[in-house]
């Protein structure tokens, strides 16, 4: 398979699966203002997914649209990080995930917007502003929950700890990213990511999560059990009516 296709798919799948989880919060957020805020974040993620999947289809040259790629691939063909697919927990869990993921995306897009591939650079240039806002939103909440009440502190710590074992996967390097000139080798982002994330965690009065076993596999299509259910829901209508337009 074409390296650029696979690489673009990875980024697009991250954004798509993240959007699907973010959207689950709509009509369930702690306050109305947050329903609107999470709606904006979900729409940003979905927008990134659409641009990236569209481009992946174009690169592949097999006439597959964004919808073909989103709705008619199976679990093992999805290349997103496991961090993105884990089921939603409480609001602290959601903000921990957003802090981890958006900080990673921000560093990645900052690099990618200068890459030689005009399309990828264009998508990254637009997305970098969006995810900067996501980082800010997550940061504001991690600070408030970490340094709020006893209960919120406990929940924030639990969220940060629960997701920590899924963070190293973001920075895994492999032959593909080393071979593909336009790709950002994510291992180069890890130190700065840790610096930024730890600064927020420290200020929030939470403890830094302790080094733990790190899960892996998303980039080669090995996922948690949760992705299958997420996709079943996402794909059900489209697959029930193959060939239909909507």
């Amino acid at each position: 398979m074409n390296d650029l296709f696979v690489y673009t798919l990875r980024l697009g799948d991250d954004a798509l699966i993240a959007a699907q989880r973010t959207a689950e919060w709509i009509a369930a957020a702690p306050q109305l203002e947050e329903d609107v805020a999470l709606g904006n974040i979900g729409l940003d993620q979905l927008g990134q997914a659409r641009s990236l999947l569209q481009y992946a289809g174009q690169v592949e040259g097999a006439d597959r649209s964004e919808d073909d790629l989103a709705y008619f691939r199976d679990e093992r063909d999805f290349l997103n990080l496991q961090l993105c697919e884990l089921p939603n927990g409480d609001f602290a869990h959601a903000m921990a995930r957003l802090l981890y993921f958006a900080t990673y995306q921000h560093l990645l897009y900052e690099e990618l917007r200068g890459c030689a591939d005009e399309m990828l650079a264009g998508v990254a240039g637009k997305a970098v502003k969006e995810v900067a806002y996501h980082v800010d939103h997550a940061t504001q909440w991690v600070l408030r929950l970490g340094d709020g009440t006893e209960e919120s502190h406990r929940r924030m710590q639990a969220g940060l700890d629960a997701l920590w074992p899924y963070t190293a996967e973001m920075f895994e390097s492999d032959d593909l990213v080393r071979r593909l000139a336009v790709a950002v080798d994510p291992s180069t982002l890890q130190a700065e990511w840790e610096r930024r994330v730890m600064a927020v965690i420290d200020e929030s009065t939470c403890s830094r999560p302790v080094a733990s076993y790190q899960h892996s596999g998303g980039r080669t299509g090995r996922h948690t059990e949760h992705l299958g259910y997420l996709l079943a829901e996402l794909q059900h209508v489209a697959r029930s009516h193959p060939g239909a337009t909507w």
Binding site: Q31, L32, E33, V36, A37, G39, N40, H137, Q140, R144
Partner: peptide, 20 residues
């Protein structure tokens, strides 16, 4: 208008609610 716990969040909520 909108509700927010403090000025920082009020500004962000305003961005999300009133400049979509």
């Amino acid at each position: 208008s909108l509700h927010a716990p403090d000025a920082t969040m009020a500004l962000r909520n305003a961005r999300d609610v009133y400049t979509r």
